[in-house]
């Protein structure tokens, strides 16, 4: 009995040794003597089984959409989701593609990615914030203040914004896009008057770009942070805190209604 077990184990081990040595041989052949052949792209044309019952939300942009500053990590997208869950029983899928510190040029590039476009195509609602990093550049704009430079930044930003909207509309002509505009985080500083004017003008010009396209809605947030900026700002005095995000989320969610027959 015992000697049989030993024999079985010994034979199994010998067979296994052969197998592992073979594996090493395959490895040497594959890793060291592989000729460089261009990798063909896998066929991507499989039919999309888009779930019509499901509500697709796609969020794009920068740290605001990411939710930086909200200790619960939800961000305004999370609060919109909370609100929508009370309004509809449909299952909801959220894809948050926002990247901290992203500027408009980065978003233009991101939108060229095949997978990002595929996500966009399925979207029912798109939320985006962009431009905060273009304008403030991590506080640089406030420290070295120059109208000429801001105008220059704005011109290229508006071009990018137009490209962004155009891409979204080409990829998905139906989805409703909420472009969430800027507030002035520097409301409490001594040159608030100038910065506010710049942000207002910036928002106005952005809204003008949005108006060129159907179903792109510029949602103001400027007023939300005008009175009690400090209560709604995170300790970095730039990003909103939990309460601030809640305000933005509630405002956007209030724009979404589910009337019978409007959405499938």
């Amino acid at each position: 009995m015992n000697s049989n077990i030993v024999k079985i184990i010994a034979i199994l081990s010998i067979v296994a040794s052969g197998l592992w040595i073979f594996g090493l041989g395959v490895m040497v052949q594959d890793q060291f003597f592989h000729k460089a052949t261009p990798l063909r792209k896998e066929i991507t044309s499989q039919t999309e089984t888009a779930n019509d019952q499901q509500l697709h939300l796609v969020a794009l942009g920068d740290s605001l959409t990411r939710g930086t500053g909200d200790e619960t990590g939800k961000g305004y997208v999370g609060y919109i989701l909370d609100e929508l869950r009370t309004k509809t029983k449909q299952p909801i899928q959220v894809t948050n593609l926002a990247i901290k510190g992203q500027r408009s040029a980065g978003l233009v590039k991101q939108l060229q990615q095949a997978e990002v476009q595929r996500q966009l195509k399925q979207a029912d609602f798109v939320f985006m914030t962009i431009g905060g990093n273009d304008l403030f550049q991590g506080g640089e704009t406030i420290r070295n203040f120059s109208i000429a430079r801001i105008n220059q930044t704005k011109a290229s930003y508006l071009r990018n914004l137009d490209a962004i909207f155009r891409t979204i509309r080409t990829v998905n002509p139906q989805a409703i896009v909420f472009y969430i505009s800027l507030y002035n985080p520097f409301n409490q500083l001594n040159n608030a008057k100038t910065t506010s004017a710049i942000v207002r003008q910036w928002n106005y010009d952005s809204a003008e770009v949005a108006a060129r396209y159907p179903n792109i809605i510029a949602v103001p947030t400027y007023d939300l942070f005008e009175l009690h900026a400090n209560e709604y700002l995170y300790s970095d005095q730039f990003h909103p805190n939990k309460e601030g995000y809640k305000l933005i989320g509630e405002r956007v969610a209030s724009l979404i209604t589910f009337t019978k027959g409007e959405r499938k």
Binding site: S17, L19, F22, L24, G25, V26, Q31, H34, T37, L39
Partner: peptide
């Protein structure tokens, strides 16, 4: 380059061994 999973596994097991 592409590798089927069984081949990939065989290589990894050879290395693990």
């Amino acid at each position: 380059h592409l590798l089927s999973q069984w081949k990939y596994l065989l290589i990894e097991l050879g290395l693990a061994w």
